[in-house]
Computed example of a mutant assay.
Amino acid sequence: MNIQMTLTESEIQTATRLLQQADQRLGRVVEQVGRCTLSPRSEYTLFQYLLRSIIYQQLSGKAAGAIWARLCAHYPGRHLGPKRFLATAEARLRELGVSRSKIRAGQDLAEKVLTRKLPGRKKLNHLDDESIINAFTQVHGIGRWTVEMLLIFYLCRPDVLPAGDLGIRKGVMVIDQLDALPSPGEVLSRGAVWQPWSTVASWYLWQATAL
C-alpha cells in the first residue's frame, strides 16, 4: 500500500486553489478567511494526542484545558506516557479532575499501546484512513469522530470529511444558505466535489461558521 503523506504547505495552497475553482460557494469563504493555517500537532506523541482527545470529550475547552494542564504537570518533565499513566493511582487521577469513565478509557488506550494492539506512529504512514479509524475505535471511549480529528489535526491527511461533526454541518448550512442542518449523508454527497482535498475544505467549513 502506498504511504499516506501529511499535507505540506504547498499542497494546502494547491488544494485551496483547486477548491476555489471547483466550488464557488466555498471559494467565497476562502476569499474572506484567507490562507489555510492547518498544520500537524507535532507537540504531542500519538498516545498524548489521543488521551487529550478523551479528556476533552463533552467538556468546555476551558475546563478540559485545565484538567489536561494539571495532568501533564503531574509527571516529571511533563512526559506523559502510557506506562506512567497506568502506574498512576485512580484516586490521584480523580484528584487531577479526570472522571472515572475517562480514566477507564485512558487505561484501555495505554494498555493497547503498550501491548502493540494499536499501530504506532510510523505504521500509520502505511495505513489508509479507514484502517486507522477501524484500529483506534477498538479503544474504549474513542469513536469515529475522535479518529477523524486525529487524521486531520495530528496526521494532516488530505481527504478527510467528518460529515457527522456539528461544525462541518453548520458550515455547509452557511455556505449553501440552507434553512436547516444537512444530515451527515447530505454532507458526504455535497462534499464529493471537494475530493481529494476534503481536509482543507473541512477547515474552511469550520471557519465559515464564524463569518
Rank of each mutant, 00 (worst) to 15 (best):
H79N: 15
G81H: 12
P82D: 02
R84L: 12
L86N: 05
A89C: 08
A91N: 13
R94G: 10
R94F: 08
R104L: 15
G106C: 13
G106P: 06
Q107N: 15
Q107R: 15
A110Y: 03
K112S: 01
R116Q: 14
P119T: 14
P119K: 14
P119F: 13
R121E: 15
K123G: 00
L124D: 05
H126V: 07
E130K: 06
S131M: 14
S131G: 13
N134Q: 15
A135P: 11
Q138V: 03
V139K: 09
T146Q: 05
F153W: 04
F153H: 04
R157W: 01
P158Y: 08
D159I: 01
L161R: 03
A163T: 00
A163N: 04
D165T: 02
L166K: 06
R169G: 06
G171H: 03
V174Q: 10
I175F: 00
D176A: 12
A180V: 13
P182A: 10
S183N: 11
P184T: 13
G185W: 06
L188A: 10
S189V: 04
S189W: 00
V193W: 02
W194R: 08
Q195C: 00
P196C: 04
P196K: 02
S198Y: 01
S202F: 03
W203E: 03
Y204L: 00
A208E: 02
